[in-house]
């Protein structure tokens, strides 16, 4: 069933992009309403997952432009995410990784929407440059440039936090 197979994927894309659990729930619902209305437009033989991700990405970007989420705060990097990530080897490593992820989670909000989407698809969701370019609808070179700018910006945020904590 479509809901079982794709709801988690769509929800996580929305959650990572918006940073708000409840906003992501509402957006996931909107995306599925759109999906069920657009199923007739799906061409058999196309990669369904990529097609759905493109539909979700378009909706998220449209809503972003309409509501300007960048002005809103993201949810705290809370228990939901920490529970889900409790798989790393040692407690110290897990703590360090959680701290980095908490900083990056907040840092995603500082990235412009197009760069944020490229970073989420390529770096978090693990898609290839080719898949990401196809989903976003831009050339592969543009995706590489966006992803690298996003990675660099997040690295600077981590570096700044690190320097700040070293000073203390």
């Amino acid at each position: 069933m479509l809901v079982d197979q794709f709801s988690k994927k769509v929800f996580n894309l929305a959650y990572q992009f918006t940073g708000s659990y409840h906003e992501a729930q509402d957006l996931t619902q909107d995306i599925f309403v759109k999906l069920f209305h657009s199923l007739t437009k799906y061409e058999a033989g196309r990669n369904f997952s990529a097609w759905l991700t493109t539909l979700a990405k378009n909706h998220l970007i449209d809503e972003y432009r309409r509501t300007k989420w960048e002005k809103k705060n993201r949810d705290e990097f809370d228990d939901r995410i920490l529970t889900a990530s409790a798989g790393t080897s040692s407690p110290e490593e897990r703590l360090l990784q959680n701290e980095r992820q908490r900083i990056l989670w907040g840092g995603l909000n500082q990235l412009p929407a197009d760069i944020r989407m490229a970073v989420i698809l390529k770096e978090i969701q693990g898609k290839s440059y080719e898949e990401t370019a196809s989903i976003i609808g831009v050339p592969e070179g543009t995706v590489k440039s966006r992803v690298n700018r996003g990675r660099l910006q997040l690295a600077r945020i981590l570096q700044k936090k690190k320097e700040h904590s070293d000073e203390m």
Partner: peptide
Amino acid sequence: LRAADEALAVFPEVDP
């Protein structure tokens, strides 16, 4: 940058 890449690659998926 390498630490960020590593942390992003294992970013947890949350249950909806």
